[in-house]
């Protein structure tokens, strides 16, 4: 991989970590568009609790970290790492699948 692409990827990753780790702590806590509509139109009560609501990262907070901004920021950084890992697995898998399919085609 060429050096300039590595620089681009590195800077991009730093930006993503800053957004997830720091900027996220300043996000608005108000209901989002769909939540607002569900409240105004009276169907918000139909929402069920998330089956994984007790998971250690639920609602973008790390269980046991009391400071709100720190907790959100840590959850964001962990989320970026998980997203990268899942992406690497899926996209590398698709890459191998594509190579295998091309290999079968007559040249």
């Amino acid at each position: 991989m060429d050096k300039r692409l590595l620089w681009f990827l590195g800077i991009g990753l730093v930006v993503a970590l800053l957004v997830a780790g720091i900027l996220s702590g300043f996000a608005s806590g108000e209901p989002d568009g769909l939540e607002r509509v569900s409240i105004d139109e009276g169907f918000d009560e139909t929402a069920e609790d998330h089956p994984l609501a007790d998971s250690p990262l639920a609602d973008y907070a790390v269980e046991g970290v009391d400071d709100d901004r720190l907790s959100t920021g840590l959850a964001g950084i962990i989320g970026v790492a998980i997203t990268l890992a899942v992406s690497a697995a899926l996209f590398y898998g698709i890459r191998l699948y594509g190579k295998a399919r091309r290999g079968k085609e007559p040249a």
Partner: peptide, 18 residues
């Protein structure tokens, strides 16, 4: 492959910022 991963990480991050 790495570009798509980076875009996924960025979209995840940006979606946190209401």
């Amino acid at each position: 492959v790495p570009l798509a991963g980076l875009v996924a990480a960025f979209v995840f991050a940006a979606q946190m910022v209401n």
